[in-house]
Amino acid sequence: MRRVWSMLPFALVGVALLLDPGTAGPAWWNLVAQVVLFTLAAAVPGHLTRHVSYVDVAWPWGLVAIGLVTLFTADELTVPTVAVALTYLAMGARMGLWSLVMTVKHGWWTPGSTKVELPRYLYQRRRWERQGFRSEAWSVQYEIWLQGLANASVLAVPAFVVAADDQRPLSVWFWAALVLWAASYVLESVADRQKQRFAAGGKRGTCDRGLWRYSRHPNYFFQWMQWNALVLLALPSLPARFDDTTPLVWALLTLGLFFASWTLYVTLTKHTGARPAEYYSLRKRPDYALYQATTNMFFPGPVKTPRQGAE
C-alpha cells in the first residue's frame, strides 16, 4: 500500500491533464508515448536483467517525447509554446545521449548480470530491504513505472499548460524565466565538464574545483533550477486553465506544477541523487568526510570550516 500511495499524486495530476480540454490532446498522446517508451526501453529489459538502470534511458527520452508532443499537438505554435518545447528537447537529448553511452559502457542488456547496475540503484536495493520489500522483480518494475508515471503527469504539466494558452503575450516574466532556464542548463553542463576534467586529469580524491567548491552536487542543483524555471514559465498561463476547466481539475494542475519542482528536489537530493552518491563516495574517498563538513550538499554557498559544519 505504501507504494500505491506514493503513486497517487502522480495519477491524480495525470487524470487532471486528461480531463482539462486544453491539455487533454497532448496528454493522451504523451501517455501513449511514455507507455510505449518505458515498456520497450525499461520495463522489458528490466524484467529480463533485474536492472533498474534502464530507467535512465527511458526517462530522458520521455522528456524528448513531451517536447515533440507539445510541438505537434499545439493548436498554434506561439513563441512560449516553441520555447517550452525546446527546453524539454534540450534537457532530454542531453541526458538521453549520455544514457546511451552508459548503456554501451555498462552492458545493461546482459541477462542475469548484477555487477553492471548503477550504484544509485544498488543503493535502492538497500532501501527495499529496510522497507521489507522482498520481490526484486516487482521492486524493479515499481521504480521504472513510477518514473514513467511522473513523465506522463507532473513533469509534463509545465509544457502542456503553456501550450494550451495560445493567447499568452510575451512579457518580462517569460524572458526572465527563459534566461533562468538557459543559465541553469549551461551551469549544469559546466559542472559536469569540470568533474570530467578532474577525473581525466588523473587526480585522486574528491573534486572540489570550480562549482564543486560551493556545492557537493552543483549539477543536480542546476538541473533542479531548470525545472523551477519551467514552473515559473508556466505560472502566467494558469489563469487561462481556470477559465476552461473545473475548479478541481485546475487545482490539481496547479498542485502538479509545483509538485514537478518538489519531485525533482526529492529525487536529486534523496531518492537517486545525492544520498546514494555520497554513501559510496564516503567508502571510496578518504577525504570525502572533510568535503561534506566544509561544503553544502545541494544549495551553493561559501566554504565552511569543519567546526561550522555544512548544509
Rank of each mutant, 00 (worst) to 15 (best):
L8K: 04
V13Y: 05
V13I: 15
G14T: 01
L18V: 08
L18I: 07
P21H: 08
G22L: 01
P26A: 10
W29A: 06
L37R: 03
L40Q: 00
A42D: 04
A43Q: 02
V44F: 04
H47S: 11
S53D: 02
V57L: 14
W61G: 06
W61N: 10
L68A: 14
L68P: 04
V69E: 02
P80A: 04
T81N: 08
T81Q: 04
T81H: 08
A83M: 11
A83K: 05
L89A: 05
G92D: 00
A93T: 13
L97D: 04
L97Y: 12
L97M: 06
L97I: 12
V101L: 13
K105N: 10
E117P: 08
R120I: 10
Y123K: 15
Y123I: 14
R127S: 12
W128K: 11
W128A: 15
G132F: 07
F133W: 14
S135T: 03
E136G: 01
Y142F: 15
I144H: 03
G148K: 10
V154T: 10
L155E: 08
A156K: 01
P158H: 05
V162R: 00
A163P: 02
A164I: 06
D165K: 05
D165T: 01
D165F: 02
D166L: 12
W173K: 00
F174K: 06
A177S: 15
L178W: 13
V179R: 07
S184N: 10
S184E: 02
L187K: 00
A191Y: 03
A191E: 04
D192L: 02
R193V: 05
Q194F: 02
A200V: 01
A200Q: 14
A200M: 05
A200G: 04
G201S: 09
G201L: 04
G202N: 07
R204N: 13
C207S: 11
C207I: 03
R213I: 06
S215Y: 06
R216N: 03
P218H: 08
P218W: 09
N219M: 02
N219P: 03
Y220N: 10
Y220L: 14
F222A: 03
Q226N: 09
W227N: 08
L233F: 15
L235R: 06
A240W: 01
R241F: 00
F242C: 04
D243R: 14
D244G: 11
D244L: 12
T246I: 11
P247M: 05
P247A: 02
L248N: 03
L252S: 02
T254A: 13
L255W: 09
F259N: 00
L264H: 11
L264G: 07
Y265W: 15
T269S: 09
T272H: 10
G273M: 07
A274E: 06
R275V: 11
P276V: 00
Y279R: 10
Y280P: 00
Y280N: 10
L282I: 09
D287A: 12
Y288I: 09
A289S: 11
Q292I: 07
T295A: 08
T295K: 05
N296A: 13
F299R: 11
P300Q: 09
P300L: 14
G301M: 09
T305S: 14
T305W: 07
T305L: 14
Q308L: 11
Q308F: 01
A310H: 15
E311T: 08
E311G: 09
